[in-house]
Design a binder for these strands. Structure first.
Lengths: 202, 202
DNA sequence: AACCTTATTGATCATACGATCATTAGTTGG
DNA sequence: CCAACTAATGATCGTATGATCAATAAGGTT
C-alpha cells in the first residue's frame, strides 16, 4: 500500500476552486436537499467548512450559484425554431424536442433541485414554467392547430397533460426512485403518437 | 376591544390533544417541509414546544404519526372492485376512479408531504407506488387488454404515462403553485378519452 | 370547597449549524 | 532560493434546535 495519492491539494486558483465548490454543492444539495449543512458539504469536497465562506458570503449566496448552475442553459434557444419548422412533420419536431428535452431534464441533479426549490416556493420555478409555456407550448399549440383538421379541439391544457406524462417518468426515476424504463424514448414516442392520433395530426 | 377570547385552553383530553397536534403537524410540515422545527410548530398550535414531547418521544415519532395520518385510507379498497366491474364501460370505470382519486390526492397536504417524503428517500413512497401498480394498474391493464382489439398493444408503462399526465396537474397546483384548472375533471376526461381512443377501446 | 390526578408549562441542557477571523502554508515572481 | 501574496485552515462565537424534567395549575371527584 502506498501513501494517499493527494492528501490535500490545497491552494487551487480561485476560479477553479469556486467551480469545484459549486459543482460539488449541486450534487450535494441534490442529494440531501437545500437545507443540507455546510459542514457535510465541505467534508464531501475535502475542504474545510470555513473555506466555503471565503467564496460565498453566506449559504444563501452559494445556493444562488447552485440555482444558476443548474438552471442556466436548461432551455435551448433552438427549440422554438425547431418546433416551428414546417419543413418537418409535427411528429418529427415533437419527438426531436422531447428527445433533447428529456436528455436535459431527466437527470438526478436537475430533477431534484428543481423539486426542492419548487417545494421551497422559489419564484425561479414559476418563471421557468411560465417561460416553458410561452416559448415552447405556445408555439407548439399553434403548430398543432395549424396541422389539425379541427384546430379548436386542441387546448394548451392538453399539451400540459402530454408534458406531464413525460416528465412523470423523470419524477419516478429520480424523486421516488422506483423502477422505470432506462431509456424513456419508447414511452415518449408512444405518448406523442397517441396524442397526435387523438387530434388527427399526421 | 375586548380581552382575548381564549388565551390558552389548556388541559385537553390526551386523545384530543394528540389529534390536534398531528393535524397541526400535517399542515405545518406540508408548508415548510419535514425539517420544520418544533418551536414553530408549537407556536402555530398555540402550545409550548415541550408539550409536543409529552405526546411523541422524538420528532421522528411525530413524523411517523404525520405519515400515518396522511397515507392512511388514501387508497380505497373499493377501486379494484370498481375497475374490474365489467357491467360498466372501461371509460366509466376509469373516469370514476380518477374522479375519486383526484379528489383524494389533489390536496395541498397530501401532494406536498408525499413529495417531501419522496425526496427524503422514504420507503413509504415506493411502497405506495408499488401498491398502486399492483392493485390499480395491474387489474386496469388486464381490463383494458380484455376490451381492446389488440390487447398486446397496451403496456403498463402506457398506464403510468396516463397517470403521470393526470398527477402532474396536482404537482403544478400544489408544488410549483402555478396557474392551472380549478376543476381537473375536464382535463382528466380528455386525457382518458385520448388514451382509450388510441387503443380502440370503446 | 378541598383534593388529587396529570396535562401543561418554563427553564435548561447538549448539540448542530452558519458565520468570523487570526494564523498557517502553498505558490509565484524576482 | 527567498520573500510576498493569498488560498486555506483551525479555533471560536452566537444562535437555533431537539430533548429533558421539575414545577404548576386545570378539571374532575368526593
Amino acid at each position: 500500500m502506498d501513501t494517499q495519492p493527494a492528501p490535500d491539494r490545497r491552494r487551487l486558483p480561485p476560479d477553479e476552486r469556486r467551480r469545484q465548490i459549486v459543482e460539488g454543492a449541486v450534487a450535494f444539495f441534490a442529494d440531501v436537499g437545500l437545507e443540507g449543512n455546510t459542514r457535510d458539504l465541505a467534508k464531501r469536497l475535502g475542504v474545510t467548512q470555513s473555506l466555503l465562506f471565503n467564496y460565498f458570503a453566506a449559504k444563501s449566496d452559494l445556493l444562488e450559484a447552485v440555482y444558476e448552475h443548474v438552471y442556466l442553459n436548461r432551455l435551448s434557444d433552438d427549440w422554438p425554431t425547431l418546433l416551428t419548422d414546417r419543413n418537418r412533420s409535427i411528429r418529427d419536431r415533437v419527438l426531436h424536442f422531447y428527445d433533447d428535452y428529456s436528455k436535459l431534464i431527466f437527470q438526478y441533479e436537475w430533477m431534484r433541485i428543481f423539486m426542492f426549490s419548487g417545494l421551497a416556493g422559489a419564484e425561479l420555478n414559476r418563471r421557468y414554467l411560465d417561460h416553458l409555456g410561452r416559448v415552447i407550448f405556445g408555439p407548439l399549440l399553434a403548430e398543432m392547430q395549424a396541422a389539425a383538421p379541427d384546430p379548436q379541439s386542441i387546448e394548451i391544457e392538453d399539451l400540459w397533460n402530454l408534458h406531464g406524462g413525460i416528465v412523470y417518468i423523470g419524477i419516478r426515476q429520480h424523486i421516488y426512485q422506483v423502477p422505470c424504463p432506462d431509456d424513456p424514448t419508447k414511452a415518449i414516442t408512444r405518448a406523442v403518437d397517441r396524442f397526435l392520433a387523438a387530434f388527427d395530426i399526421t
